[in-house]
Design a protein around this nucleic acid. Structure first.
Lengths: 161, 161
DNA sequence: TGCAAAATATTTATGCTTGAAGTAATTTTC
DNA sequence: GAAAATTACTTCAAGCATAAATATTTTGCA
């Protein structure tokens, strides 16, 4: 993992702040990459599924009445075309359905089937255990601190969500 | 963004620790996704390049004598096949070269060309500014705290790097 | 009403990514 | 010194991801 490790070069001594931000970012990137890798492997071996599929199911599980494609795209922070492909496959597997929207023939509402809801419930439970295990090195107090700092950093950036 | 947002459901009151870890993880995931999205867009519009290409160049910039393909794969935490493709394209663009390894005809050493080194230097400088800007909401002290906590969490997990 | 502008969804092209399988070279084992 | 195991890299298929282009529908407004 890298994405610019010009960290070990001696600096003049002025812009220490940008260096410490860069350093923090690289750590965050490494952590999220290693956790995502571990989750992906487990999703595949335990459920024959993927993270993007799980993300779509998770979003729909919270939306009682379903979501539009564009809502999904926004919620998951991925492109429209991407959602189309993932939804296509989930529909093929009978985990979700597309339904037309009353009064707007461009849009589609996507929602879980019973099968999809059950499938997600099983995965979600195990998923939380995996996170707990993968972040075992994170003391309870540190977890809250991390949550607080990262939330603040996100609000400070330019693109909210 | 989601990946299991079963956070807002009332819990019995027992496993608060796993909930706080899950919450922290979801924040970390959202942050890294939004920053990567912003960086990707800027890499494309400013340099006509991509993050994976930048990552490879960054790793090679630090390795005076070049790196093997498998070293790159480990350093970037991506699969072997992935590295092959990215390196192929960078070679096509004249930014890096492949050279045989003395005494091991299976392996290849990859290193920057002069063109590649110059190109990376330009990008790295701007990249650091982007990070500084995207993490502008992160106070200097928080950046160090974040670095420390995330580093500890990574060492606690199962896959080191 | 009628038509331009905006919104929504899909399609297309390209590149990233993985996991598995394949090829070739090297090292280990006996 | 030959068979077996390991290591290094590539190739392949499938899925993920984006940006740009297209098609369609709805909305705004003159």
């Amino acid at each position: 993992m890298s994405q610019a490790d010009q960290l070990d070069r001696p600096t003049g001594g002025g812009e220490a702040v940008s260096k410490s931000r860069l350093r923090a970012w690289l750590q965050v990137l490494k952590l999220s990459r290693s956790i995502e890798t571990a989750l992906r492997e487990r999703m595949r071996s335990e459920f024959g599924s993927t993270l993007p599929r799980f993300d779509v199911l998770a979003a729909l599980d919270r939306a009682e009445t379903g979501m539009r494609m564009s809502d999904l795209s926004r919620a998951l922070m991925v492109s429209n075309g991407n959602v189309t492909g993932i939804v296509d496959r989930l529909v093929d597997d009978g985990l979700i359905v597309r339904a037309p929207v009353q009064g707007d023939r461009r849009a589609w509402i996507v929602r879980l089937t019973n099968k999809g809801r059950q499938h997600f419930a099983t995965m979600a439970q195990v998923h939380e255990q995996w996170i707990d295990e993968l972040l075992g090195g994170l003391a309870p107090g540190d977890a809250r601190t991390l949550d607080r700092i990262v939330s603040a950093a996100r609000r400070g950036g330019e693109d909210q969500t």
